[in-house]
Simulated assay, not measured.
Amino acid sequence: MSYFATILKLFGVPTGITLPVLNADLYSLGEEESAFFKSQTGIADDEELKKHILTVQDKAYKVYPYPCIRRFAFTKLKISRHPAYQQFLQLGKTCERGVFLDIGCCVGNDARKAIADGYPMRNVIASDLRPEFWNLGHELFKSTPQTFPVPFIPGNALESTLIGSTEPRYSPPSSPAPELSSLTSLTPLLGRVSAIHASAFFHVFNEAEQFQVAQRLGALLSTEPGSVIFGSHEGRPESGTREYIPGVRMFCHSPESWRELWEERIFKKGSVKVDAQLEQVARSDLSSTSEVHYLLVWSVTRL
C-alpha cells in the first residue's frame, strides 16, 4: 500500500492521490535538538548523526507512514518548549510517586528529554499503539531496555484493554500504588497519574474519538491539585473539519471548543483549569504551503 493510501485509510477517506516519499531535505536539527541527540547517542559528528537518524526514520516509516515521521517531528523536543514544562518538572521534584505518562510516545524522544532534565526515571511510563516505534527508540538513542528501563505499554487509547474507565476520579485511590514495571495496561493507574503528555496525538482521531480519548486520559489523572495533562496538536481558529492535505480531512478543535471539552464535558465544572492557544506553524513538508497551519498548545490542570 502506498504512503498516501495508508494515510487515507488512517483518516477514513477514499484513495486515489499520491503523496511524496521520504525527503532528506526536510531534516533539520535546531541547536537544542542537536545537543540533545549528541548527548544521548554519543555521536558528535553532524553528518554521522544525520545518517543515523535517517536510517531510523526509514525503518519507522515502514512501520507506519505517519506524516510526523516524514517531517522528522520525532527529532523535535516538543515537550521542553511547552508552556507547562517547568510546572511539569516541578511535579517530578515535589511528588515522590508523581507518575508521568507519555502517551502516543512514538520513539520516546519527549520522555527521554524529560528524564534528561530531571524527571525521575523510576516514575516514567510510556505508551503507543505500535511497540515497534518504542523499540526503534532504543536503536535511535543507542539504549537497551536494561540501560533505559522505562516501562512501555502498547495499546489503543480508545479501548478499555488499555485504559479501563472513562470517569475522572475526585478522591484519591485507597489501594497502594502499583510498581510501574509490573503493569500490562494503564488501568491500575486510574486516578494516579500526576502528568500526562500527549503531543501530535489527538488530531489522528475524529471528533467523537477525541472526546473518548479525553475521557480516558481524564480518568487517569491524579486528584492532587496541580496534576496536569498537556500537549499540542493540529488546531484552528474555529473548530471543525479541515482539509489537512488534498483529499484528507481532519477534525480540529479551536481553543474555545478545547476548553469547553475539558472544563464542561470531561471534568466537573470548576475542577480543572484549561489553557489553550494557537501557534501558527510553517509546514514545508506539504505540497501546498499557502494554507495557514496552526498548532493548538494546551494544558489541563487540576484545581
Rank of each mutant, 00 (worst) to 15 (best):
I196Y: 05
G137C: 09
G137Y: 08
K142Y: 01
E132F: 01
P168H: 12
E132Y: 00
R192N: 04
L180G: 14
D128M: 03
L136A: 02
A177P: 07
I163C: 08
G164I: 03
L183K: 11
H138G: 02
R130Y: 12
L129A: 04
L180R: 07
P178Q: 10
P154D: 14
G164V: 00
S185R: 07
I153Y: 03
S174A: 13
S175I: 06
F152M: 03
S194K: 11
N123R: 05
F141N: 11
S185A: 13
P120M: 07
S174Q: 14
E132W: 00
S181T: 15
V124G: 02
N135C: 03
V193F: 04
E139P: 01
D128Y: 03
N156C: 08
A177Q: 07
R192D: 01
L129V: 03
L186H: 10
L162Y: 02
L129I: 06
S174H: 06
A195M: 05
D128P: 06
S165T: 08
E159D: 15
S175E: 14
N123K: 06
P131D: 08
S194N: 15
L189T: 12
E132T: 02
N123I: 13
Y170W: 03
T166C: 09
I125L: 04
L158P: 08
E132C: 00
L183S: 06
E159I: 01
T144D: 00
S181M: 09
T187F: 09
F148H: 09
G155C: 00
T161R: 15
L189A: 11
P168S: 14
S181H: 11
L183R: 10
H138R: 01
A195F: 02
L190H: 08
L140Q: 02
S127T: 07
P120Q: 06
M121T: 09
T161C: 10
P172C: 11
N135I: 02
F141I: 01
P188Q: 13
R169E: 00
R169L: 13
I153L: 05
R192V: 10
G164M: 05
M121F: 04
Q146S: 15
S174D: 10
H197D: 05
S174L: 14
F133H: 10
G164W: 03
T187N: 10
P178I: 13
T147L: 01
P149C: 11
P120T: 08
L186S: 11
S181R: 12
G191W: 06
E139T: 14
P149W: 01
F152V: 06
S171T: 15
P151I: 06
Y170L: 13
S160A: 15
D128K: 07
R122P: 04
S165K: 09
V193I: 11
E132R: 04
